[in-house]
Amino acid sequence: MVRDGVWCKSSRSGSEGNCVEVAGFADAVGVRDTKDRQGSALSFDPMAWTQFVGAVRVGRLTSRA
């Protein structure tokens, strides 16, 4: 995955520093820790990412925190 791109902080990130950033690329969606921008990033298939976000939005996935 290409590391250069437009990374956007999640609108659901809180003020506690537990934040993630997401970037869309031609062949992948990248997710990284805002506090460690030079560290590892996860890479997802765009369709899988879209399905994941959709499941979260309709409440099919719940937090156990």
Rank of each mutant, 00 (worst) to 15 (best):
R57K: 13
E21H: 12
A41L: 05
W49M: 04
G30L: 00
A48V: 11
Q38M: 04
E16S: 15
Q38W: 09
R3A: 11
E21W: 04
F44I: 04
D36P: 00
D45I: 11
Q38N: 06
V6T: 11
K35P: 00
G54D: 09
V6M: 07
A28D: 09
V2I: 06
D4L: 05
R60T: 04
P46V: 04
L42R: 00
S15A: 00
S15W: 05
G17N: 14
S10H: 13
D45P: 09
V6C: 09
N18S: 13
R37W: 12
S11I: 08
R64Y: 15
F44L: 07
V2S: 11
Q38R: 14
Q51F: 11
S43Q: 04
L61V: 00
K9A: 10
K35S: 03
A28E: 09
R60Q: 13
Q51G: 14
S63E: 01
A28I: 06
D4T: 10
S11W: 03
G59T: 01
A41R: 02
S40M: 04
V20K: 10
E21G: 05
S15R: 03
A65P: 13
V53E: 15
S40N: 01
T50F: 10
F44K: 13
G59H: 00
A23K: 02
V29G: 05
S63I: 00
D4I: 06
